[in-house]
């Protein structure tokens, strides 16, 4: 990957890298990046403290990394522990470890397998979560697919297809605690919900499955609900 304008750099012990343009940045020990970095690949196996913004094609955090600024990448994989104080944008974002992003997150494809906390809004074409997440703002995605393994929450959820189900089979273990989704409002075209607590659900075709508490459902097409778990109020908004 070496290039005269983009030298590779590697911290194996403890060290500091200044900001700038790089080819590959590898932090295997404990490293500090003291400014903004633009590189092709950014890999953290150890502990990294990035004090500026990061722009890279491939970003992999297997160890632990903290980013003071915004993070922008093509393929972003957080399998370790990542802390982003700014916003995060990517083409594909995969979180299998623990990630906290203070700002907004935007990526056409988001896959959550670990634990994720997002302070701002979260935008995706496909949002696929099989883990635990908390989103402080709006989760806006074309397809929202959530398999509940623990407590999940978002301030609001909007999209075309929203599908929330309890994770099945072997995941029924007692130590998992409450497994549910909480949101103020959920709005979409096709909505299927299980174990969801929401103030209002609005959509065209809405199915309310087991374990839901919904204060108000508004629908323009069909409403299907298991007996005993339907919403306290139903309004057909169809003209």
């Amino acid at each position: 990957m070496s290039d005269t304008n983009r030298p590779d750099t590697k911290i194996a012990g403890a060290g500091t890298v200044t900001g700038g343009m790089y080819g590959e940045v590898v932090i295997a020990g404990a490293g500090t990046v003291s400014g903004d970095v633009d590189c092709l690949a950014f890999k953290v196996g150890g502990v990294a403290d990035v004090q500026g913004a990061l722009t890279a094609q491939a970003i992999t955090v297997g160890g632990s990394a903290s980013f003071m600024g915004d993070v922008k990448g093509t393929d972003v994989v957080f399998s370790g522990n990542a802390d982003v104080h700014g916003a995060l944008s990517a083409e594909t974002l995969r979180i299998s470890g623990v990630a906290r992003i203070d700002g907004a997150v935007s990526a056409p494809r988001i896959e959550i397998r670990g634990t994720t906390k997002i302070g701002g809004d979260c935008e995706a074409e496909t949002f696929d979560a099989q883990g635990v997440f908390s989103i402080g703002g709006l989760l806006n995605a074309g397809t929202v697919s959530i398999r509940l393994y623990g407590g999940c929450d978002a301030h609001d959820i909007g999209g075309e297809t929203i599908d929330v189900r309890l994770a099945s089979a072997w995941a029924f273990l007692p130590f998992l605690g409450d497994r549910n989704l909480t949101a103020d409002s959920i709005e979409g075209d096709t909505i299927y919900l299980e174990s969801t607590r929401a103030k209002v659900v609005r959509g065209a075709n809405v199915t309310i499955g087991a374990g839901c508490t919904i204060d108000l459902v508004e629908y323009t097409g069909t409403l299907t609900g298991n007996a005993g778990v339907v919403a306290s109020r139903k309004v057909s908004a169809g003209a």
């Binding site: 074309g142 909007g158 999209g159 075309e160 979409g188 959509g203």
Partner: peptide
């Protein structure tokens, strides 16, 4: 309101969220 907008224009929630994105 969002609801009136959707009814008036004949668009869906999904469309509106997509346009926002």
């Amino acid at each position: 309101s969002k609801k009136d907008l959707l009814l008036t224009c004949g668009i869906s929630y999904g469309q509106l969220y997509r346009w926002k994105r």
